[in-house]
Nucleic acid binder design. Structure first.
Lengths: 157, 157
DNA sequence: TCATGTAGTGGACGAGATCGACCGGACCAT
DNA sequence: ATGGTCCGGTCGATCTCGTCCACTACATGA
């Protein structure tokens, strides 16, 4: 994970379809060696994959909400987690240090779908209470920040 | 936005580097017509871009936190938003319906950076209070859900 | 009936991806 | 010092892919 790797990762975060040839020109290497580095970054888990960034409103998922979950004492977190994962509308799921020990980011087409979703989450065994907040607007989302160059490889070779 | 477009978008969300030739094979068209569709999806804003999915821990951003902002009465939201945007560690920013009218998702290398960040956000004029929650683990994040096929193009041609 | 617009096909050509062979410096043990 | 080995890179050949353009099929509407 040297300076060149960081540059490659930053370029691929800015445009995930950048060709190896273009990356090579940017970092001053040839295409095969850039490809070699990218393959290694993928194998090491630094690059987990590539995805198209889609406007959720344009595909009919106009409503975004955050749902906090307060568990009861009997909560089996493996089970809760599994049941949450089975709900496709939950795009993100964080385990938090706080009373609300999960926060979900969900997207649905209509308010009725959100209501149904809240009921479904609330019905999961071990969930004592949920607290839902509608997002009025998304100012920005998943903006890549520059990779810190503190030299440490953080355990990933 | 027909069934083929939805398939293309789903394929590109699953792997943003899928070639036009491969997409063409999957949807039963030729590469040029698939490219034509993708270009239109990009122009219409359905596909906003492409990005590499990076493991934040592997690049030294091991700490994720959620920061809620409670504004005071004098809050100038355009100004707040602009100042928040200038902080690179804030990866996402939602405007919410609630007492905490913003929620930020931030990533930093170390706790000391988080502390500094909280002070910086708290010092923004119009911010009365912040409430920070550390994420102990990310169960999953930005999982793409199938595009609802309700036929409506949602105003985007 | 005939223009017109839309979406797709097929071919051609340049660019990119990918593989194997080779090169040179760093490191290590003899 | 010498030679072996590993690592990362380059070079060249080949195959695939991207991209442009001309042509076709089909639905729409005057």
């Amino acid at each position: 994970m040297d300076e060149i790797d960081r540059t490659i990762v930053n370029l691929l975060r800015a445009d995930g379809r950048t060709s190896y040839a273009e990356l090579a020109r940017r970092v001053g290497l040839t295409a095969p060696s850039v490809q070699d580095r990218v393959v290694k970054l993928e194998r090491n888990g630094v690059i987990a994959g590539y995805t198209a960034v889609v406007d959720s409103e344009a595909i009919g998922l106009g409503i975004t909400a955050l749902i906090g979950i307060i568990p009861d004492n009997s909560a089996d977190h493996l089970d809760i987690c599994e049941r949450l994962r089975a709900i496709p509308q939950i795009e993100s799921c964080y385990f938090l240090a706080g009373v609300e020990c999960y926060q979900l980011k969900v997207r649905v087409p209509k308010m009725a779908d959100l209501e149904q979703l809240i009921h479904r989450v609330g019905a999961i065994p071990g969930v004592a209470q949920t607290r839902t907040t509608i997002t009025l607007s998304t100012k920005w989302e998943d903006r890549p920040q520059p990779i810190p160059s503190d030299g440490d490889d953080h355990g990933v070779d």
